[in-house]
Design a protein around this nucleic acid. Structure first.
Lengths: 336, 336
DNA sequence: TTGAAAGCGGTACCAG
DNA sequence: CTGGTACCGCTTTCAA
């Protein structure tokens, strides 16, 4: 097998200088038609492809975007990545992935690594981010953008959705449907998004002068949702609660499972909502009302912004929020 | 902002030659303790990180594995990627992703691109693969491995599972549970995996001298499964069918939905099984019996093999099959 | 052990 | 318009 052809080979075959070869490849300057053709023929004949590594080395550009994320296994990550990938490709950028499994240590390694690969921009997708890593990115002087996070929105750039507004909207939606005693189920670990959501619920209920009941569980799992209702069913009934807003689809599914096992009719006894619009919300029976988050769009916009920063050397300092959408399904019933 | 430090800077600060710097970084040769220390100090002080691009250029190694896949949006892709990523990282390989959205044209571009980035190996994850692209990879002389595919297993390397055996096992399982009239639902588009699965069903039923009923639908969707049962319910009952094996979870979920809507009790009237063990299979009520595919392991093993090829220049010519697992859940009932 | 110097495959500036 | 050449940052002979 013969070694990959280089510009040297093209130059020899075409009988021109190496600079000329470079010129016709990049269209940097005018080259006479005959030489252009000679070069193109040689390229075709040899099947020459420029070595991007060498090119990046001298240009100090790699046409690559680095993505740092916690775990590719999270189902919504794929949606982010689609947005990033698709739009990135439109601008000729490719994707270098780095999973950190939530470890700050690995996050730092990721930055160093991506930087050494000379990525032109970095997108960090993580709720639990450490400011060290952000400063590290800044130090490397590489443009970046944050997704899925609430960390210091003032100081760091982020594209996200307004979780508080989203949950407030969901609560309003329950109220519009006639519910006045609405319970709220959240996970206790204090991530910002979780707190924002709760505050949205609180705000909406208070605006309508309704009581509010916040219940906390320890994990964002189906089991936790199940146990919650098992434990609190009587209490909810005693207080005439007719709707339960869960801060996640997992929790909501747990609630639905408990109802299924105990012949509690949904939505007759309770209207239930989740959050995230995961696949299951549409497929479970009864199908679950949820809040759709525009992951794809967030990824897409993040890339657009990054590209803009790269192209125009323009700063990006506002945090952008995208719109959520309430997906009404069978678990909601209008009462009164 | 000061430019990134290079070996030149380290050399100056440490007062040694640039070769020496390289040596202590790579441990290529013995270097006297004092110089070693001087270099290390300089590196630490400057925060020097080697430029991987330059390194790759001269070494002709990039420590990067290229992944070509159809669409990162497919839910099981994430599991493949986790396996690849996690094991890849163990061997210091990083991941360059390329989505092709099933287009052969883009697949070819992907190969060229990855090659120009000097990836050391390529993993192709796609059911619909074109042999052109395989020859293209061969031409580039870069080691590769195929996943999720059945294409020419003799000529090309692949890690997969034995779909035929898997479906035959599922059928046997139904038979063990006393079912003698078992319907089979497949998608008509003729991918290899689909055909293999069907042949597994046929084989098992024939081994037990049972009748077999194969139904075909046009899409692998929940709706298709739903419509299938809607159309064939009476026919199934007339033939005393007590079990339905669907070739995918989607189809099976559609069946479950139809039953839910029409008060057909599962598993009393029908035992139902899906394939793929998607998230929904565990979360739907009744939970769906399915076949778990070891995506993570497939990815992990693929990387191991690739690394072995890279390290030992060893050929890999057998196709490896990994074990599936039948996940028994509520949709199955023992009869008789 | 150590340093000088020749590349790896390109780009871009400088003359001509 | 075209060719020569320095250089991007690093590894690796080859001598010393």
């Amino acid at each position: 097998m013969s070694r990959k052809p280089t510009m040297e080979d093209v130059k020899n075959l075409a009988g021109v200088s190496i600079s000329t070869v470079s010129r016709v490849i990049n269209g940097t300057r005018k080259v006479s038609p005959d030489k252009t053709e000679a070069v193109n023929k040689a390229i075709a004949k040899l099947g020459y492809k420029p070595n991007e590594l060498a090119r990046s080395l001298v240009m100090k550009r790699s046409n690559t975007l680095g993505i740092i994320l916690d775990d590719i296994g999270y189902s919504y990550m794929a949606q982010y990545l689609r947005g990033i990938d698709e739009i990135g490709k439109m601008y000729k950028y490719d994707i270098l992935l780095y999973s950190t499994f939530g470890s700050f240590e690995i996050q730092k390694k990721a930055v160093d690594f991506l930087s050494s690969k000379q990525v032109e921009g970095i997108i960090v997708i993580s709720e639990k981010i450490n400011n060290e890593i952000l400063y590290l990115i800044k130090e490397h002087d590489i443009p970046y953008i944050l997704l899925d996070t609430f960390y210091s929105p003032d100081e760091f750039k982020t594209v996200s959705i307004d979780f508080k507004k989203a949950m407030s909207d969901m609560t309003e939606f329950m109220i519009e449907n006639g519910h006045e005693n609405i319970a709220y189920l959240r996970e206790k670990t204090a991530f910002h998004s979780s707190e924002s959501k709760e505050s949205g619920y609180i705000e909406a209920t208070e605006n309508h002068k309704l009581d509010n009941w916040v219940f906390g569980v320890n994990n964002d799992t189906v089991e936790a949702g199940y146990k919650f209702l098992e434990k609190n069913y009587n209490k909810l009934k005693k207080n005439d609660v007719t709707a339960i807003i869960a801060e996640s689809d997992n929790l909501a599914v747990g609630i639905l499972h408990y109802c299924y096992d105990n012949n509690i009719n949904i939505p007759e006894e309770f209207s239930v909502s989740g959050f995230g619009n995961s696949d299951i919300s549409e497929l479970i029976k009864p199908s679950l009302t949820s809040v759709r988050l525009p992951y794809y769009d967030i990824g897409a916009i993040a890339v657009r912004i990054l590209v803009k920063i790269l192209r125009d050397k323009e700063e990006f300092n506002e945090s952008i929020n995208l719109n959520h959408e309430i997906m009404k399904r069978e678990t909601i019933k209008k009462i009164k």
